[in-house]
Simulated scan of single mutants.
Amino acid sequence: MKINVINNQDLKKIDEKKVEEVSKYVLLKEIGEGDYELNIVITDNNEIAKYNEEYRNKKGPTDVLSFEYGLDEEIIGDIMISVERIEEQAPDFNNTFEEEFFYILVHGILHICGYDHINEEDKKIMFPKQDKYFQELKEKGII
């Protein structure tokens, strides 16, 4: 397993080692060891808005975009996270920037692993799992 962290912004300091550690934690639990890669692009609102419009036909920035390529592929997916959007929304959830960043990272990884929240049944599976991993990571002192 290889986690490639590409930091395309200089607005917020991001602990790239922690991004790798959180990613590996969730991926090991979900799909185990393997010869695969995951790309995580840390960016700003402008860049993520371009991808949001091009690939989802939606205007404006989102906190995260996940591009799932399949768990049998060499590169299983790309995740893009906007630090600006994370900073804007963190207070809405009573999170620090770092907490919100890693909560959203877990969310993006779960999408790569095949989870979704389009309907109520999917939400009942994905969101508790996201909360569980986030709590475990906090309890272990990783975040």
Rank of each mutant, 00 (worst) to 15 (best):
M1E: 12
K2G: 09
K2A: 10
I3F: 02
N4C: 12
V5I: 06
I6P: 06
Q9S: 10
Q9W: 08
K12Y: 08
K17S: 11
K18P: 02
K24G: 02
V26L: 01
L27N: 01
E30Y: 05
I31Y: 14
I31F: 06
Y36E: 02
Y36D: 03
L38M: 04
L38V: 10
I42H: 00
T43L: 10
D44P: 09
N45K: 06
N45Q: 09
I48S: 03
Y51A: 06
Y51G: 10
E53K: 14
E54F: 08
Y55C: 11
K59M: 06
K59V: 08
G60C: 08
P61K: 14
D63V: 15
L65I: 07
S66M: 07
F67W: 07
L71G: 01
L71T: 00
I76C: 06
D78W: 07
I79V: 12
I86K: 00
E88N: 07
P91F: 09
D92L: 10
F93P: 09
N94M: 05
N94T: 13
N95F: 15
N95Q: 15
T96L: 02
T96Y: 00
F97V: 12
E100K: 05
E100L: 09
F101C: 02
Y103H: 09
H107A: 07
H107M: 01
H111N: 01
Y115T: 08
Y115C: 07
D116I: 08
D116K: 12
I118Q: 14
N119W: 04
N119C: 03
E120N: 15
E121S: 10
K123E: 15
I125R: 12
P128M: 14
P128A: 06
K129Y: 00
D131M: 11
K138S: 10
K138V: 05
K140W: 04
G141K: 05
I142K: 00
I143Y: 01
